[in-house]
Lab assay of single mutants.
Amino acid sequence: MKVIFLKDVKGKGKKGEIKNVADGYARNFLFKQGLAIEATPANLKELE
Score class of each variant (00 low, 15 high):
Lys12Trp: 15
Phe5Trp: 03
Lys10Met: 11
Lys32Leu: 12
Gly16Pro: 01
Ala26Thr: 08
Val3Leu: 04
Asp23Ser: 14
Val3Lys: 00
Leu35Val: 05
Phe31Ile: 13
Gly34Leu: 07
Asn43Met: 12
Gly16Ser: 04
Ala22Leu: 10
Glu17Thr: 06
Met1Arg: 08
Lys2Gly: 05
Val9Trp: 05
Gly16Asn: 07
Ala22Ile: 09
Lys45Gly: 09
Leu30Pro: 01
Tyr25Phe: 10
Asp23Asn: 11
Gly13Thr: 02
Lys14Val: 09
Lys14Pro: 01
Ile4Gly: 00
Tyr25Ser: 05
Glu48Thr: 13
Ala42Val: 09
Phe5Glu: 01
Gln33Asp: 07
Lys10Ser: 10
Tyr25Ile: 07
Gly34Ala: 07
Lys15Val: 09
Ala42Asp: 12
Lys19Ser: 07
Leu35Thr: 02
Glu46Gln: 14
Arg27Trp: 10
Ala36Trp: 01
Glu17Ile: 03
Val21Asp: 01
Asn20Pro: 07
Lys45Met: 12
Gly13Leu: 02
Gly11Arg: 05
Gly16Ala: 03
Phe31Met: 06
Glu38Thr: 04
Met1Asn: 04
Glu48Asp: 11
Pro41Ala: 13
Leu6Gly: 01
Asn20Val: 15
Val21Met: 09
Tyr25Lys: 06
Lys10Phe: 12
Asn20Gln: 13
Leu47Trp: 15
Asp8Leu: 04
Thr40Phe: 05
Lys2Met: 15
Ala26Tyr: 13
Gln33Leu: 15
Phe31Asp: 01
Gln33Lys: 14
Val21Ser: 02
Arg27Gly: 02
Lys2Tyr: 15
Lys15Phe: 06
Arg27Asn: 06
Ile37Trp: 06
Val9Lys: 02
Phe31Gln: 02
Met1Asp: 03
Ala26Phe: 14
Ala39Ile: 05
Asn20Leu: 15
Val21His: 02
Ala22Asp: 15
Leu47Phe: 13
Gly24Tyr: 14
Pro41Met: 10
Asn43Tyr: 08
Glu46Phe: 14
Lys7Glu: 09
Gln33Tyr: 15
Lys12Ile: 15
Lys19Thr: 07
Leu47Ile: 11
Phe31Lys: 03
Ile18Glu: 03
Met1Lys: 05
Phe29Val: 14
Asn28Ala: 10
Leu47Thr: 07
Gly16Lys: 02
Leu47Arg: 09
Ile18Gly: 01
Asp23Pro: 15
Gly11Glu: 05
Tyr25Val: 07
Asn28Gly: 10
Asp8Pro: 04
Leu30Ser: 00
Lys32Gln: 10
Glu17Leu: 03
Glu46Ser: 13
Phe5Asp: 00
Ile18Thr: 06
Phe5His: 00
Gly24Arg: 13
Gly11Pro: 04
Glu17Arg: 02
Lys2Ser: 12
Tyr25Thr: 05
Ala39Ser: 04
Glu17Gln: 11
Val3Trp: 01
Met1Ala: 05
Thr40Trp: 05
Leu35His: 04
Asn28Ile: 08
Val3Pro: 00
Lys19Trp: 07
Glu38Leu: 10
Lys2Pro: 08
Lys7Asp: 06
Val9Leu: 06
Ile18Arg: 02
Asn43Trp: 06
Asp23Phe: 14
Lys12Phe: 15
Lys12Asp: 07
Phe31Gly: 02
Ala26Arg: 02
Lys2Asp: 09
Leu35Gly: 02
Lys19Phe: 06
Gly34Glu: 05
Lys32Met: 11
Glu38Asn: 03
Asn28Lys: 11
Ala26Lys: 03
Ile37Gly: 02
Leu6Val: 09
Lys32Ala: 13
Glu46Pro: 06
Glu46Asn: 13
Phe31Tyr: 05
Gln33Ser: 09
Tyr25Gly: 04
Lys7Tyr: 11
Leu6Trp: 02
Ile18Trp: 03
Ala26Met: 08
Gly24Thr: 14
Tyr25Pro: 05
Met1Ser: 05
Leu44Ile: 14
Lys32Trp: 07
Lys10Ile: 13
Ile37Gln: 05
Met1Glu: 03
Ile18Val: 13
Lys45Glu: 11
Asn20Arg: 14
Lys19Val: 13
Asp8Ala: 07
Phe5Lys: 00
Ala22Trp: 10
Gln33Thr: 09
Arg27Phe: 10
Lys12Gly: 13
Leu6Gln: 03
Lys12Asn: 07
Ile4Lys: 04
Gly34Lys: 09
Leu6Asn: 01
Gly34Ser: 06
Gly11Met: 04
Glu38Phe: 05
Ala36Asn: 00
Lys12Met: 15
Met1Phe: 08
Lys2Thr: 14
Phe5Met: 04
Ala26Glu: 09
Lys19Arg: 12
Lys12Pro: 01
Pro41Gln: 11
Asn20Ser: 14
Ile37His: 04
Lys14Trp: 09
Leu44Asn: 05
Phe5Ala: 01
Lys7Trp: 09
Ala26Asp: 06
Gly13Lys: 00
Asp23Gln: 14
Ala39Glu: 02
Leu30Arg: 01
Glu46Ala: 15
Phe31Leu: 11
Lys12Arg: 12
Tyr25His: 06
Asn20Ile: 15
Ile18Asp: 01
Lys32Val: 14
Asp8Val: 03
Ile4Ser: 01
Gly13Arg: 00
Asn28Gln: 11
Lys12Tyr: 15
Gly24Glu: 15
Leu47Ala: 08
Lys14Leu: 12
Val3Gly: 00
Phe31Thr: 04
Ala39Asn: 02
Val21Pro: 00
Glu17His: 04
Lys32Tyr: 07
Arg27Asp: 03
Leu30Lys: 01
Pro41Asp: 13
Ala26Pro: 01
Ile18Tyr: 03
Lys45Arg: 13
Val9Glu: 01
Lys19Leu: 10
Ala22Thr: 13
Gly13Asn: 02
Asn28Trp: 12
Met1Val: 13
Ala42Phe: 09
Glu38Asp: 04
Ala39Thr: 03
Thr40Gln: 04
Glu46Val: 13
Gly16His: 07
Lys15Tyr: 06
Ile37Thr: 06
Gly34Trp: 06
Gly11Gln: 04
Gly24Met: 12
Lys15Gln: 09
Ala36Thr: 01
Glu46His: 13
Asp8Thr: 12
Lys10Asp: 12
Asn20Met: 15
Phe5Ser: 00
Lys7Ser: 10
Gly34Phe: 08
Ile37Tyr: 05
Leu30Gly: 00
Ile4Val: 09
Thr40Ser: 10
Ala42Arg: 10
Lys45Leu: 13
Ala26Trp: 11
Asn43Leu: 12
Glu46Lys: 14
Gly24Ser: 15
Asp23Lys: 14
Leu35Asn: 02
Lys19Met: 10
Lys19His: 09
Ala36Arg: 00
Ala36His: 00
Ile18Pro: 01
Lys14Met: 12
Val3Phe: 00
Leu30Met: 03
Val21Lys: 01
Asp8His: 08
Glu48Lys: 11
Phe5Thr: 00
Ala36Met: 00
Ile4Thr: 02
Glu17Ala: 06
Gly13Gln: 03
Lys32Ile: 13
